[in-house]
Amino acid sequence: MTALLEVDDLSVAYGAIEAVRSVSFVVEEGQIVCLIGANGAGKTTTLRTISGLLRPRAGDIRFDGKSIAKEPAHVILSRGVAHSPEGRRVFARMSVEENLLLGAYTRKDEAGVRTDMNRVYELFPVLGERKQQKAGLFSGGEQQMLAIGRAMMSKPRLLMLDEPSMGLSPIMTQLIFDTIKELQQQGTTILLVEQNALAALALSDRGYVVDLGQTTLEGPGHDLLADERVRAAYLGQ
């Protein structure tokens, strides 16, 4: 296996406040990797920095062997890194179809976009049934499906999902996690940020614990699940 994404001693600051101090992790091609940690640990900041929405203060991010730490967001996206942001952030007043088209904004191959759009509709039939409806009228879970589908529209090699289960019912959370597994089986590498550590670790090939802006623990998902410290701190056991 080759490393698709390598984050190396990353540090990010909002002005004087250092949100990420020293985060390092590796995502190998074809894996699901998750970052878990408490609120404010720096997980979302890490994802936003990888996708180019924030600039790192120090450290390096390499995608497919090349540094993307200094590239703008649109270049990173066209290299193959898609980001489904925290809180879903679908365009509420635009239709499902318009949302998906915006996901494919950097692509020029119209036929390919159509094909991928139909794939999204197959993956989430509820979206296909209501493609002309405004995204804001969908339930939270359906909006999460749309956010994932929209990110998939750029045909990414690496899909980064920020808190996909946030605010969803257990059934909907299960459905979203099943979909993530399915996307992995179809060949997409996935970097997952989750507070729902139990479900995320069970799904992941590898997990990293982020605490106060640093990666403190790492290991295969089921090993972390069994780790005493993780169980105490994040699983409430």
């Binding site: 929405l53 967001a73 996206l77 980001h83 942001p85 679908v90 915006l102 929209r150 750029s154």
Partner: peptide
Amino acid sequence: EDEDAARAMGI
């Protein structure tokens, strides 16, 4: 609609 999300779309 949402400038940050627009940037995440590569706009």
